[in-house]
Amino acid sequence: MSTADLVQVGGLHFARGSHAVLDGVSLRVPRGSIVSVMGASGGGKTTLLNLVAGRLRPDSGQILVDGLDPSGIARQDLYRLRQRMGMLFQHSALFTDLTVFENVAFPLRRHFRLPEPLLRKLVLMKLEAVGLRGAADLTPAELSGGMARRVALARAVVMDPHLILYDEPFTGLDPISIGIIATLVRRLNDALGASSIVVSHDVHETFAIADYGYILAGGKIIAEGTPEELRASDSPLAQQFLSGRPDGPVPFHYPATEDFAAAMGIPMETREAPRP
């Protein structure tokens, strides 16, 4: 089946205990596009990715990936679906006991019985695409953070996935590496004809590559649109997030039970009148 949207999420609710992590989230990923989901840390972005990947089960709502519901299908079917997905993890998650080459070759070795020369070609092609063919024999411990992220990217796309999920791809990298990763995300998406979901809190880099963006706060989508539309958004929450102001609809102060003066033991009569 080929609907226009590879991923459709509707009315998604997910709670941890009494805390609602996602509270009615709907989004869609058109085929061939890069969709970004932005929001503050702890805002449920990674949870959303895990739900799309079928690693968590939603309390209610619907997820469809390529027409299949990841949380409602049998384990073998889910694994078959995941063979068509790639995921880049925040900490790269390279296997520390394998070389760069074997890391990228891992999914191929586990799922197909390829002749060694063909496997070698496939792996070196992906490594070449991320510019690290020369590092094939290094171990992950010998790589810099940016290089490790690129190897992980090569591994995520080695099975030619339809859908690539990025969990905070820019976090903890230097500006040059961020630029490289951003370029690669765009280039790989277009070269493979894949669709991507980029979860990030780095507004600038994400806007540079995304076709469409969602801003997630408090478990809800508070704004959506193309990067230009989002920049022009009149939502104060979105504006606070995009411009990085310390105080605003998201308060600077964590809620406290008693006020500051009382906590400091300042006598009642010397207190200033509360500000409006």
């Binding site: 690693r55 995941r82 063979q83 790639g86 900490h91 296997f95 586990r110 591994r155 099975m159």
Partner: peptide
């Protein structure tokens, strides 16, 4: 430490149990 560095998650996402 494989768990802490998301290696187990990555495996799971590569459809390897």
């Amino acid at each position: 430490s494989m768990k802490a560095t998301e290696q187990l998650d990555a495996m799971e996402m590569m459809a390897v149990n």
